[in-house]
Design a protein around this nucleic acid. Structure first.
Lengths: 256, 256
DNA sequence: CGTACGCTTGAATTACATCAAGGTAAGTGG
DNA sequence: CCACTTACCTTGATGTAATTCAAGCGTACG
């Protein structure tokens, strides 16, 4: 097991004037351990209009090292997390200890939504690379204070997008052949990095073959074989976790 | 194709004093075509405290006949729906016309969440039986008006629960053998009807074998064979869509 | 009455899991 | 620095579970 438990505090700072860890403040600052609502909305790509009322709201950041977890299953809910940078996976682990990957998070992803209804996270989020996250504490999300209406609207929007992504995953992982699933997975990853402004042709996968397999509902050997097959067809070039998409069109239209 | 398109209006009523279709009002009424926030929260099983400020908010109901759709993929978002009674399925249909079931809705389910972020429904909801739904219009959800804070909080909570259900589905439909999937599906259905106060031993499935198969990621023949196998083991009794659970313990612990 | 649809069951085929072996890369301790 | 370990990945051989194709039955409905 790689997952090392990390609860609550990460880098324990406490410069005098700073508020208690996790609390937001209205005091403007240039301290790089805080993010404002504008940055949060940009990360989420929330394109709605902001009233401007909340622009002084600040949110605490949190760094998580590769292999560490952001939260664990069953842990008390303490807010949603927006990914500033880094890659993560979310997973549920069932009784007999076997892990099941639900999603892969990256810059702009929103984590922890499932924690609201039972006030307890129902999956775990594990950093695949070093990560920087922004915590949106539940106190601000549900305060009902008028100063948070922008945040609430953005949160609705982002949650809906995560639901939509979940649907996409669901369909992806139920589509016919395993080779097609892997092809679509790579396609999806490519679109993700493209939407972040990077080259859609070259990917560095942050997750293992086993993770991909768990996510797609196949074994790691099947994933490996699918990569080899797609490489053999001249669609991809695969060296460990470095993927080069040689033929984007063929990848997009690949149906086995 | 069973799905008959139904857009917007259902039973066109227009008794003088009623507001325009789909608008909420603060005027108290005993008209049974409207539901108040209290009923909505009860249906959702939202157990949070309500401020009481919104108790006069009224929401328009909508009846949908079996086989008709509540909304279609790509249709403009016009709010979330809470199921008052009846059974539904939500599905996405991809380019080559093949349908993929995402979830089965029943009393208390929340539909349409994925529509918020693109302002457009991204799946379709089809009634399996005659249904009665309550519409929560987006105008109220995002109004920012203080009078809606209870609704907003309940909506967050319910959305989170739907996300959680989605995760459960996801894991369910990725677990090992098809017979186990079917067993867990029946188990889940049983728990659902039990939580609504009905007998958990006797189920009437509203969906076809094909729907179940699509949901679980197997073919309809496989579902049928799984039912037969579970019946042969003395765990279930299956007559068409009538299911009697003979051994709840055996069903719960069934692992193939 | 006939057609359509949903369901079951059987036989043949296939895609995937499983088991197993070997290879590479990163990290650890002597 | 090198042996040693460990985790990750690839590839092959074999078995098996699920799909596919096909036939037949019951029920609903025009």
């Amino acid at each position: 097991m790689l997952n090392i438990q990390t609860t609550g505090l990460t880098s324990p700072i406490s410069s005098g004037w700073l508020p208690a860890i996790g609390r937001t403040r209205f005091k403007p600052t240039t301290d790089d351990r805080w993010s404002d609502l504008k940055e949060v909305c940009e990360l989420l790509r929330f394109d709605g209009r902001l009233s401007g009322l909340d622009e002084n709201l600040l949110f605490r950041r949190r760094r998580v090292k590769a292999g560490q977890s952001v939260f664990l299953m069953g842990q008390d809910f303490d807010g949603l997390y927006v990914v500033r940078f880094g890659n993560l996976k979310t997973a549920v682990t069932n009784d007999d200890g076997c892990e099941h990957i639900l999603s892969f998070g990256m810059k702009g992803s929103l984590l922890g939504i499932d924690g609201i209804c039972k006030n307890q996270y129902r999956n775990e989020a594990v950093a695949l690379t070093d990560c920087d996250l922004i915590r949106l504490p539940s106190s601000e999300l549900f305060s009902g204070a008028r100063s948070c209406s922008d945040l609430e609207h953005a949160a609705y929007w982002a949650i809906s997008r995560e639901v939509l992504r979940g649907q996409t995953s669901y369909v992806l992982t139920h589509s016919a052949k395993s080779e097609v699933r892997v092809a679509r997975f790579i396609q999806l990853q490519s679109e993700c990095v493209a939407s972040m402004g990077y080259s859609p042709r070259c990917l560095t996968l942050p997750m293992t073959r086993r993770d991909i397999g768990s996510y797609l509902g196949v074994t790691l050997e099947t994933v490996s074989r699918a990569f080899s097959a797609l490489a053999h067809l001249g669609i991809l070039e695969v060296v460990n976790r470095q993927i080069v998409i040689l033929s984007p069109d063929a990848l997009r239209s690949y149906e086995g």
